[in-house]
Design a protein around this nucleic acid. Structure first.
Lengths: 208, 208
DNA sequence: ATGAAAATTACCCCAAAGGGTAATACAGTT
DNA sequence: AACTGTATTACCCTTTGGGGTAATTTTCAT
């Protein structure tokens, strides 16, 4: 089961088959082709694919958008819209669902394939985006009193949950030195404790 | 200066103009059109755009990929490849740069516009993805001994850097109770201190 | 080579946090 | 009614962490 399974939600059988053939030609597996929102939800619950290709307009309703919302809420998989509706209001609604791609018919084969590949890869990288490693540059960008490199290495260890004693050991310095450095960084960060220092670091890493 | 500025890196003047016209028709601003890697880097440093449209192949070399890497390293803006090279090796290399989109020529206008809109929107959402709020469901999913709801509220406060005293005050409970709860959660998390508890929470939030 | 900034160490003190045991109250379950 | 799990509180004790001052060494730039 190392194959990449793709669910196609498309109410036009000809196009669905077309897309399906194209996908299988590119070493992916079509897990199912469904025509309605209900069937799509059932398929998601019973046979979770790795990615969903979604037509926005299913039998007259914009059920594709609803499916997209459900995917965001309940499943952690990427999806790509494939639709002939490229008017602004539809696109507006679509983009709020944060799709991995939005392909407008008629599309070319290479375009679909590359969008698929990138969606899968970017999604796989997504978890790494959470809780990114600390960056001295980013932190100092938002501080009046700059953190030195040495202090930063101490901060990284604090951020990893190390105790002062552990820090002293891994850095081959005395416990007093550790305390001193940490004290200095607390002043610069405006922190009053380890936990609050970590909170400060989080904020400094996100603030522009 | 509320306009969305887009930099076009494309060595075929006709196509560049074409894309430029299309962009301006859609209420975006073309910040510049450049033909070489060097000019692109200069433009990024002096007049940072909100998004970059990148041709991979510039005058025979695959400089587009190098520019993409530089953008990832130094600038926090989205970029979209627009290229006629859709062979697998090129796509492989391209996807590792984590582009917001990959458009294969010939492309249709609606496709470019929708990809642009989505890239901009998704990128704006990206920062919110960093350091997501804690979720009891996610945490318990990876624990043998489950955290109770009450304990979770305590954990959230610890995660926000609050001291035991502060927690006792906001929850109207005694300091002893706070200590007791926290002690229990440490056992469940396998943590030995506040900082290490935060580390545990981070890991539990990312692990599948 | 002189001075400034950063790193290192020591010492003291007090506040905060962690670990253990025990008891009571209160909910929902069987 | 008895049982279970959670929440609540108290008490005791030990360790860790935070705050202040002071002194020495290293490093780097002027």
């Amino acid at each position: 089961m190392n194959d990449v399974k793709i669910l196609i939600v498309e109410d036009e059988p000809i196009i669905a088959e077309d897309i399906g053939a194209l996908i299988e030609k590119n070493a992916f597996v079509v897990s199912a082709i469904v025509y309605t929102k209900e069937k799509a939800m059932h398929e998601l619950q019973t046979n979770l694919p790795d990615l969903v290709l979604l037509d926005i307009n299913l039998n007259g309703a914009m059920d594709g958008l609803l499916i997209a919302e459900k995917i965001n809420e309940q499943f952690n998989i990427p999806f790509i819209f494939i639709t002939s509706y490229s008017d602004k209001p539809t696109l507006e609604k679509a983009k709020y669902t944060e799709p991995s791609g939005y392909i407008v018919k008629p599309f070319n084969e290479a375009g679909l394939y590359s969008t698929l590949e990138i969606a899968l890869y970017n999604h796989a990288q997504k978890n790494k985006l959470k809780f990114p490693p600390l960056s001295l540059q980013r932190i100092n960008k938002n501080l009046p009193d700059l953190i030195s490199e040495r202090e930063f290495t101490l901060l990284e260890l604090i951020y990893e949950g190390k105790t002062n004693k552990q820090i002293a050991e891994v850095l081959f310095i005395s416990l007093n030195t550790v305390k001193k450095h940490i004290n200095n960084t607390y002043l610069k960060l405006g922190a009053t404790s380890r936990a609050s220092a970590i909170v400060c670091l989080r904020q400094l890493m996100t603030d522009k």
